[in-house]
Design a protein around this nucleic acid. Structure first.
Length: 109
DNA sequence: ATGTTGACACCGG
DNA sequence: TCCGGTGCCAACA
């Protein structure tokens, strides 16, 4: 199939992120085998409306300036915790594998 | 073909 | 801990 395009893989990866979990641009880029985290944002800006783009954020847990308000709102609705203006990546960062309760704390308020 | 931009990441002070 | 500058890759004019 022709879904091996970079944009398509990015969308597939972001779409595979379960609710309550977040992924950084760099992780998504690395997941698809690309070295351009900026490319991820560009694709989301193009067809992000078809994927849970709000589950993608920066490596330091902060959100983009223009998306901060809306993205924060959506993440809070998903159950993601915030530490000031940044997300607790240590607990909600999804590496592409199912969270193991033997090593990760999963979602525990 | 070249230069500039960008929903970023990493390092140093 | 926070702030600034630099580097990487791909797309766009």
């Amino acid at each position: 199939m022709s879904d091996d395009s970079l944009p398509q893989r990015i969308l597939a990866c972001v779409e595979s992120i379960p609710p309550g979990r977040v992924m950084t641009y760099g992780d998504v880029a690395e997941y698809i085998g690309s070295r351009a985290p900026r490319m991820v944002g560009r694709v989301l800006a193009a067809d992000g409306g078809t994927v849970p783009w709000h589950r993608v954020l920066r490596a330091d847990g902060s959100l983009a300036p223009h998306l901060y308000t809306e993205q924060r709102q959506r993440l809070l609705a998903e159950g993601v915790r915030f530490r000031g203006d940044k997300v607790e990546l240590a607990r909600f960062r999804w590496d592409g594998q199912l969270p193991d309760s033997s090593s990760a704390q999963s979602v525990k308020p």
